[in-house]
Design a protein around this nucleic acid. Structure first.
Lengths: 186, 186
DNA sequence: AGTCACATGTAAAGGGTTACATGATTAG
DNA sequence: CTAATCATGTAACCCTTTACATGTGACT
């Protein structure tokens, strides 16, 4: 897949500017598809020239004007076509796993701080996800949130993020225990 | 990171040809870093001209001759430098999660077969990993296998793969239950 | 005057996939 | 003769990152 489908999904949920999309890719949708603002602007240009999105100039007071993008008919079609076409599971890219195997010929203990750093990132993310879950899907959901299908689908994706972070933390603990074994000469 | 470090790790474990590397990337190291043969040959060329690897022509009988690559001193240095330099956790790319959120405006039930297909892939991979674990890290390990640190590090990486597949299967069951909820109108 | 949030881009390089291409040898 | 495994590559294209670049308006 490419960024364009993630953008279509986001714009379908709510139209917005390139800048706003970039902010959404730092949270929410960015939990499972990352993108920088440069990349977003570039793809948005192509999508516009392909007719997938409509643009509207929005003058603003107290801040720079912006362009608001929304999904056009051909964009909806492209999204629908992609949803119906089978996709293979993404190819895995775990640099930390490569490092761990590579450490065998160096000093495995040197990796400990790196692994701990990653563990910290994952615990932070987990806390962030859980806070978002309590806010948006708890007993007192935000009054302006989406309803029904959209809401439940967003929730199940978020639960996937939570499960992923929990698994990573548990595995990194396993890695740390293994690395500690070399230190003490076990 | 890039492919070259994964290749260095693999060649450090055992020298081999581009073809052999491509096969390793279909199993073992490919469980957490995928690469096609075209890509491998291209990167190998660059690594050779950078002096990271040595090449040796190996004439063979009964099959085409091959080039055997092994890690050279500068390659070992580059690998060591990379191992000591911090790396951020890889950016996530879960197309299925994007699809699930995108399904809200189409027909969520149309995704069921796609999710089931992914679930099947993950159960296959899990079975494959567990078979490899029993073979290489069970009570009767292969006699020619690696020892000590290398072996334990390979095992902990494999356990990560197992944990990942198990988490994915559980999450996809959660997704299927959620999608089923729309079918029955709940 | 400086910093921050908002807002939009371009250019160059790097990383990776897909399509195309060739050829040897073994087994059926 | 055909298919499979072994073996190596090129070319074009696409996706993404990094570096560079500009400018508004609010607040301190």
């Amino acid at each position: 897949m490419a960024l364009e489908h993630a953008i279509l999904v986001s714009l379908q949920e709510k139209p917005g500017s390139g800048y706003e999309l970039a902010r959404r890719f730092e949270r929410s949708i960015g939990y499972f598809w990352t993108a920088s603002h440069q990349h977003i602007y570039r793809v948005l240009k192509r999508m516009e020239s392909d007719g997938w999105v409509d643009v509207r100039d929005v003058p603003q007071y107290g801040r720079p004007d912006k362009k608001e993008y929304s999904v056009a008919e051909p964009g909806r079609d492209a999204l629908s076509a992609w949803l119906h076409e089978p996709t293979e599971p993404e190819s895995v890219r775990h640099d930390l796993a490569v490092k761990i195997r590579g450490a065998a010929y160096g000093n495995p203990a040197a990796l400990i701080s790196e692994v701990e750093r990653h563990r910290q990132t994952h615990t932070d993310r987990l806390a962030h996800y859980l806070a978002g879950e309590a806010r948006d899907f708890g007993e007192h959901p935000a009054a302006d949130g989406p309803l029904d299908a959209e809401r439940e689908l967003q929730h199940v994706v978020l639960r996937g993020g939570v499960a992923y972070e929990r698994m990573m933390i548990a595995w990194l603990d396993d890695v740390l225990a293994t690395l500690a074994g070399f230190n003490t000469g076990h």
